[in-house]
Design a protein around this nucleic acid. Structure first.
Length: 377
DNA sequence: ATGTTC
């Protein structure tokens, strides 16, 4: 054979009901041939990304690949239990009150930064902004409780509304990857080297900053509604962390993969479907200590508009079959992030149940999904 | 994904 040794284990967690795009499998296989790759795991939401697939976890022993994490280092989901009550929903009034979230936040970031032991930095003007793409902040009701003990152990009550925030490190992570790639391209870094240490320092900073960002987003969102909340979880799905798998110390690259060793995880579907609050059954090393991070895209962004514009008005796309409202003044995003562009979250969840990876704790139903009020074609 | 497209 060739000179490069391709001994990586490749696994895809997907039943026959779960359609996985061929291009995503191809990207998974290609990524598995990177020097030093030991394990490439496709999660049930695996879909094609920019060269490397999304919904995947990659394990190496001594080689670090920053490009696998991508630009949004630290991207993740935060979930807050709010002081808003299910019995006092004022959906349309709240929609009107949710303004100003796209502009720079004018509050004091110091207390939020302190929580993560961060000092002020040059990207702080972006703190509290949701960003674009698949990012959102969504007010939800508790739809069903599937595991009463775990639900109450988490301090949750059915009568409270929840706020789910999906965002990341904004321009900070982008700048880190950009600077890195300018020098090292897609080459691996060796553990212990100066450059690996430098990347990890910046990466760890971006993870903490993204966590702060989600906290400020939640604060702004809830302040606009005259209320507040308690953080239930904050789970990052784009990261590079040390991990021991089957007794071997190495590095776990998560690209759209939620950790299964940090407690509760929330796995959203599209804005038109339920989100699942789950508890990992075990930190399953055979599956890269990871879970799906969402439903996964079914359609490319570039083809969503063509498939939808003759079937739905823009107005229709601001409502969902579950009775929720979507705040999105960016027309392209309205199409790109339409529920139809995503796979069925129920299948993704079912695959993880069949693999004995999760226990479902509760399902959450969207009430208001905030994307952006910035008007764009 | 991105103070987004050199």
């Amino acid at each position: 054979m060739g000179t490069s040794e391709t001994s990586a284990i490749i696994r895809v967690i997907a039943s026959e009901k779960n359609w996985i795009e061929g291009a995503a499998l191809q990207q998974l296989n290609t990524t598995a041939t990177l020097p030093g790759m030991k394990m490439a795991i496709g999660l049930p939401d695996l879909h094609p990304g920019k060269g490397t697939p999304v919904g995947a976890a990659f394990f190496t022993l001594t080689t670090l690949y920053p490009f696998l994490i991508g630009n949004d280092i630290g991207c993740g989901m935060g979930l807050w239990q709010t002081d808003l009550k299910h019995t006092k929903i004022k959906r349309d009034r709240w929609v009107k009150k949710l303004t100003g979230l796209d502009a720079p936040w004018n509050g004091d970031p110091a207390p939020f930064l302190d929580e993560e032991r961060l000092t002020p930095g040059e990207w702080d003007p972006a703190l509290g902004t949701i960003g674009g793409g698949n990012h959102f902040a969504e007010l939800q009701t508790v739809n069903t409780i599937e595991n009463d003990a775990l639900f109450h152990k988490a301090g949750l009550s059915k009568g409270a509304l929840m706020l789910l925030v999906h965002s990341g490190s904004r321009g900070l992570g982008e700048s880190i990857l950009r600077r890195h790639v300018a020098v090292y391209k897609n080459n691996g870094l060796e553990e212990g080297s100066e450059e690996a240490a430098a990347y990890l320092r910046q990466h760890d900073h971006a993870l903490a900053w993204a966590r702060v960002n989600r906290a400020v987003i939640a604060h702004r969102f809830l302040s606009a509604l005259g209320t507040r909340g308690n953080r239930i979880l904050d789970i990052c799905h784009n990261s590079l962390t040390p991990q021991t798998i089957q007794g071997q110390a190495g590095w776990l690259h998560r690209k759209g993969a939620a950790p299964s060793d940090q407690g509760l995880v929330v796995i959203p579907g599209s804005r038109g479907s339920l989100s699942y609050l789950v508890f990992p059954t075990a930190p399953n090393e055979m599956h890269g200590v990871s879970l799906a991070h969402g439903a996964g895209r079914k359609w490319k962004r570039s083809e969503s508009k063509g498939r939808l514009q003759n079937r739905y008005t823009l107005e229709a796309l601001t409502q969902t079959a579950l009775g929720s409202r979507v705040i999105c003044k960016n027309k392209a995003l309205l199409y790109e992030e339409a529920p139809q562009a995503y796979k069925n979250i129920d299948v993704v969840i079912q695959d993880m149940l069949e693999a004995d990876l999760i226990t479902v704790v509760a399902t959450l139903k969207p009430l208001i999904t905030y994307k952006t009020r910035e008007v764009q074609a």
